[in-house]
């Protein structure tokens, strides 16, 4: 129980930090959104009057009249009501609606790809680490190449080979635009077909990290006394591998989920851009190019919330599978 409370407390602090960061960034940065947009307007030959400035200020919701503290309080109050403001680039849609529209795409893509990469990587790592020193094991350092490949470049290569040269998958988009969006067969099939390349990119780019971590832990675990004991008892190697070595070796991989998820989310943001995928990442970049500050902040908040939530779940799960963490705290 104390373990759970501690974890919850930590995530409350992390959540507060993220919210405050989101509040502070626009106010700390040298650029003022209104100034940037007015400069863009001027470049296109527009005339800037005080009235235009006021209109833009109101449009962006940049109410900078009150004190910093009252701004902060009203910011938190708006968030509590789920009010993230109005998107400029999808005007007059609300930011929360735009996010809700693109959220399922990213959630499914990143979720499925991460689970596949983690499972495959851990399994392969366990097999490779079980017999250290074989030819298979000596190939492990080669996976560092996969880990060092930039996500978006891998995406470009895959798109070039599989979509352009071989023509197996569509090059861009999340679904065939002539189909009706909804829960019907052709649409789902098209969505899956469009999702294969982005998912493959994420899996290929992130599997190396899982494999390496699991392999190293497996090697360390094999020299533990309980593995030796199990061996001496005459248990079959498969049973030792499954019930003794792999189970203990997988713990750091689970605990390291936080760091890997951050990387995967970061990578998928740019991957979505390459494939013009209609998810959160594509929207975020669109918001940056269109100076849609409300949408930008809303998206950042949602991504952070998603990562925090996933980490909380993994942490609670970790407490369940490793009793030592509960005993210590």
């Amino acid at each position: 129980m104390r373990y759970i409370l501690r974890k919850l407390g930590f995530y409350v602090v992390a959540l507060w930090a993220a919210l405050t960061l989101n509040f502070a960034i626009p106010r700390l940065m040298p650029g003022n959104p209104v100034d940037i947009m007015l400069a863009k307007l001027q470049q296109r030959g527009g005339v800037v009057t005080p009235a235009t400035r006021k209109a833009y200020t109101l449009l962006l919701g940049g109410d900078s009249t009150g004190s910093l503290w009252s701004q902060y309080v009203s910011y938190l109050k708006n968030l509590a009501h789920g009010d993230l403001g109005v998107s400029v680039s999808y005007y007059p849609a609300k930011v929360s609606d735009v996010i809700m529209q693109s959220l399922p795409w990213t959630l499914v893509l990143v979720g499925v790809a991460t689970v596949i990469a983690a499972l495959l990587g851990v399994l392969l790592g366990a097999v490779v680490g079980w017999k250290p020193g074989t030819w298979l094991d000596s190939l492990v350092p080669a996976t560092t190449l996969m880990a060092a490949v930039p996500y978006f470049w891998l995406a470009l290569i895959l798109a070039y080979v599989l979509a352009r040269v071989l023509g197996w998958f569509p090059l861009q988009g999340g679904y065939d635009v002539v189909l009706d969006a909804g829960w019907n067969g052709p649409f789902i099939a098209s969505a899956i077909q469009h999702g294969v390349l982005p998912a493959l990119t994420i899996v290929l780019a992130s599997i190396g990290g899982w494999l390496m971590g699991m392999r190293n832990m497996m090697v360390s675990t094999l020299s533990e006394d309980y593995v030796l004991t199990a061996d001496a008892k005459g248990l079959s190697p498969m049973k030792i591998l499954r019930s003794y070595a792999a189970r203990n070796a997988v713990l750091p991989s689970v605990a390291g989920f936080a760091i890997s998820l951050g990387f995967v989310v970061s990578g998928s943001v740019i991957t979505e851009q390459v494939f013009s995928y209609p998810g959160i990442g594509g929207r975020l970049l669109g918001a940056v190019t269109n100076n849609d500050y409300a949408l930008m902040q809303g998206l950042f908040l949602f991504i952070t919330l998603g990562v925090l939530g996933a980490n909380l779940v993994v942490d609670l799960l970790y407490g369940l599978i490793d009793p030592r963490t509960r005993a210590r705290s």
């Binding site: 993220a18 940065m29 951050g262 940056v288 500050y293 991504i303």
Partner: peptide
């Protein structure tokens, strides 16, 4: 330690993108 743990769970690239968006 709390500070670095919080900094760790906040996803880096989206944060960088938002910061870069606000820098002219």
């Amino acid at each position: 330690s709390l500070f670095s743990n919080v900094a760790l769970v906040i996803p880096g690239l989206p944060l960088i993108i938002v910061i870069s968006g606000f820098v002219p």
